[in-house]
């Protein structure tokens, strides 16, 4: 298949940047979206031009590195899919595809389609962990965990920290990401101990970094490749209220 691409090119964080048009030809419908850009980049290198910089790592939907805002959607138009798992058969022959970086104040563009997502790391560092003192490994069955909570914690822990929720949200809010991290701990006995401090610290960090306020548009849930539920945001709000009152 043939495609017309409109790609955001920006040489450095301070460069103004602009959209550049590219044509790609004979792309296999079985190629992934990233492979399609690989092909374009090979052609650009052959021509002596600068290849398009983009993030990727595992290419199997688990690391959260790939990004790209494709035709108006983070990770492209297909639901519950990362860009590395998006196939070209989801596009029409001859279609124009607009490719942009994530846009949010806390995610500055480094180069072309690569943004700096270390703001998420800072949020994790502010409280997204449990403190353990090393020693003997406790018996796994000594702490009973109810099945429902274990499942909900697993669902929340599926978040790969890709930032699509922020990219999708009209407010550039990080609430879905932060609430997934808060929830995965708050639901389990080991995480409950520091739950109050954790939620306060992580929310404060999220605000400080300049992410927007959630207005419950639920765009994040619709665009999340791991289908993290906005019920996690409600849980985080409950945790936050408990922490403030308690």
């Amino acid at each position: 298949m043939d495609l017309k691409l409109k790609i955001w090119r920006q040489a450095s964080p301070t460069d103004k940047g602009q959209f550049v048009d590219y044509d790609v030809h004979n792309i296999s419908t079985d190629a992934s979206f990233l492979e399609m850009i690989d092909i374009l980049n090979d052609e650009l290198i052959e021509k002596g031009e600068r290849p398009v910089a983009f993030d990727h790592d595992c290419r199997e939907g688990i690391c959260g590195m790939c990004s790209l805002y494709i035709n108006g959607h983070p990770h492209g138009p297909e639901a519950a899919t990362t860009t590395c798992q998006l196939h070209m058969r989801k596009f029409k022959d001859g279609e124009t595809v607009v490719i942009e970086p994530w846009r949010a104040k806390p995610f500055p563009v480094i180069k072309d389609l690569i943004v700096d997502r270390s703001a998420f790391d800072e949020i994790i560092q502010s409280g997204g962990y449990i403190s353990v003192t090393t020693g003997g490994v406790p018996d796994g069955n000594s702490i009973p965990i109810n099945k429902e909570h274990a499942d909900l914690a697993m669902d929340a822990a599926a978040c790969i920290g890709c930032g699509a929720c922020v990219a999708a949200c009209k407010n550039a809010s990080a609430m879905l990401f932060v609430s997934a991290k808060v929830s995965q701990f708050a639901l389990l006995p080991q995480g409950k101990i520091e739950a109050h401090d954790r939620v306060k610290a992580m929310v404060a960090k999220m605000d400080e970094l300049g992410f927007g306020n959630c207005t419950n548009t639920y765009a994040c849930e619709a665009e999340c490749p791991k289908e993290i539920s906005v019920a996690n945001i409600a849980r985080m709000n409950r945790e936050f209220i408990k922490a403030k009152l308690g």
Binding site: F19, H73, P77, A104, K105, K170, N171, G212, N213, A222
Partner: peptide, 18 residues
């Protein structure tokens, strides 16, 4: 919320569920 996204998208789909 406006300040949180100083530069917007060229093409943005309708994603709001409410």
């Amino acid at each position: 919320n406006w300040v949180s996204r100083p530069k917007g998208y060229k093409k943005r789909a309708w994603m709001e569920q409410s």
